[in-house]
Design a protein around this nucleic acid. Structure first.
Length: 411
RNA sequence: GGAGGGAUGGGUGAGUGGUUAAAGCCACCAGACUGUAAAUCUGGCGCCCUGACGGGCUUCGCAGGUUCGAAUCCUGCUCCCUCCA
């Protein structure tokens, strides 16, 4: 509805709480923001990203959905590609010398990022700006002018700087520059509202302050809650391996969502779906009172999210796959194959390694000892592999190693 | 410029000459159970040989050395952190 009316006026919703509360950790300042919304002019919504890490996962989606909601009311997203800082490379972390990204890498990463970004955000109402447009001409004089506005003490206030300083962890000088560059972006595009996770609060506030110093109306800061990853403990992040990527294949996406601890069902509904608040309250109630099986809510969640990033068919297929393989322990429809010739004369151990069901001979031995390996005949007969006995697989048989690893023997 | 501290298996972190393939925790894998790849419980978790018992090899920043024996001691190097100036 709103999205087809590109030229229409900005809408002002009567009930702002969907915008200002759900999936929002904090707005600085909420009063100023609602006043801005009521002005009825299209707001410039700033969102930046660093094309050194092109993968988007569900943790990022919380904020992207908020952008989309505001776009649907007629506001404008300005996506800033941090190509300039990305080419320097990220100084943080101990991964010593990260190779400098080439211009081609940056372009490629940016393209990949945007492909994912626009699965949620409306491309029609988005303007893309590259940081190099303004930082390309920056001189040392500009840098000095910019850095002179803040003090080291101010910057050491930032949570992670303070923590790392206290713990004697390294802080690179360039890292201190990051908030400044990000803040300057806000000035250049005259941002009205900037979005980021709660861990971005400091950076967003520097932008707000700098704009004020430069005589602009300070931007509002939208802090998105940190999404807890599939481990149920730490924030979703690629390096922790507890993430669900947007470009994950459907079955993988669905399965990862089913591995969420039950406690995460409610927040995921709240942050990642349009299921109404009242209904989420009912779900929460049903789970806490144990009147329903949480698995069913989780299935619905997994289906819904998978459908968003793929489509309804893919989501249904993923669910069928899950029920078949995980719940009923049957063989999946599509599994890798090896030819009988390729594995003849191999011991069971070697066979498992050859077919990637085990990473090493020792691993294969362990799996067998643990009773994880079996041969499944076309007629359904299952023969558990024992360390001493030969398996003698024939064409058409399937070898299973653990719950989810299979290989079929072809002619 | 000076002084001190540190580098251990995917992560964290014990270990200061042999009982250490290296504690504990996390992650991961498997099995049981089940309501799911949830939860819980049990086991495993360097590589190679072995049906097993067992054996062999490699590993504690890098390179040398001392010793019957080194993650542990010595020398040099690389990298990191802190404090003083």
């Amino acid at each position: 509805m709103a999205r087809c009316a590109l030229t229409s006026q900005v809408q002002i919703p009567e009930n702002l709480s969907t915008i200002t509360r759900r999936g929002v950790s904090r707005i600085i300042s909420e009063a100023e923001f609602t006043a801005m919304l009521r002005q009825g002019r299209p707001l410039r919504l700033k969102m930046g990203f660093d094309p050194s890490r092109p993968d988007i996962h569900l943790g990022h989606v919380v904020g992207l959905r908020k952008l989309r909601q505001l776009q649907d009311l007629g506001h404008q997203v300005i996506l800033i590609v941090g190509d300039w800082t990305a080419q320097i490379g990220d100084p943080s972390g101990r991964s010593a010398t990260r190779p400098m990204l080439t211009h081609a890498d940056v372009l490629e990463n940016a393209e990949s990022y945007m492909r994912q970004f626009f699965k949620v955000v409306d491309r029609q109402r988005t303007r893309v700006e590259w940081q190099s447009q303004w930082f390309g001409q920056f001189t040392l004089a500009n840098v000095i002018e910019l850095t002179s506005r803040f003090t080291v003490a101010q910057f050491l206030e930032r949570d992670d700087f303070a923590r790392r300083f206290a713990e004697h962890q390294p802080i690179a000088i360039t890292e201190l520059l990051y908030p400044l560059l990000q803040a300057y972006d806000s000035v250049v595009i005259e941002s009205d509202v900037e979005f980021g996770g709660t861990d971005q609060m400091f950076n967003l506030l520097v932008g707000r302050e700098l704009q004020g110093m430069m005589g602009q109306t300070p931007q509002q800061c939208f802090l998105m809650p940190i999404l807890v990853g599939t481990d149920g403990i730490q924030k979703m992040s690629k390096s922790l391996g507890n993430y669900v990527a947007l470009e994950e294949p459907p079955a993988e996406m669905y399965g990862k969502l089913m591995s969420l601890p039950d406690t995460l069902i409610t927040p995921y509904y709240e942050y990642l779906t349009d299921v109404p608040d009242a209904e989420i309250a009912e779900i929460t109630q049903a789970i806490t009172s144990q009147t329903a099986n949480p698995m069913d809510f989780k299935k619905r969640l997994a289906r819904s999210i998978t459908a968003t990033f793929h489509d309804a068919d893919a989501a249904n297929t993923a669910e069928a796959h899950f029920e078949q393989v995980v719940q009923r322990r049957n063989i999946p429809d599509e599994i890798p194959e090896v030819t009988l010739a390729a594995i003849s004369n191999l011991t069971i151990n070697q066979l498992l390694v050859q077919t990637n069901l085990a990473s090493s001979n020792s691993e294969a031995r362990r799996l067998i000892a643990q009773g994880a390996v079996e041969l499944i005949r076309p007629n359904g007969e299952r023969i558990l592999a024992a360390a001493s006995a030969a398996l003698a697989p024939a064409a058409g048989d399937v070898i299973r190693a653990g719950r989810r690893r299979f290989v079929r023997i072809a002619e």
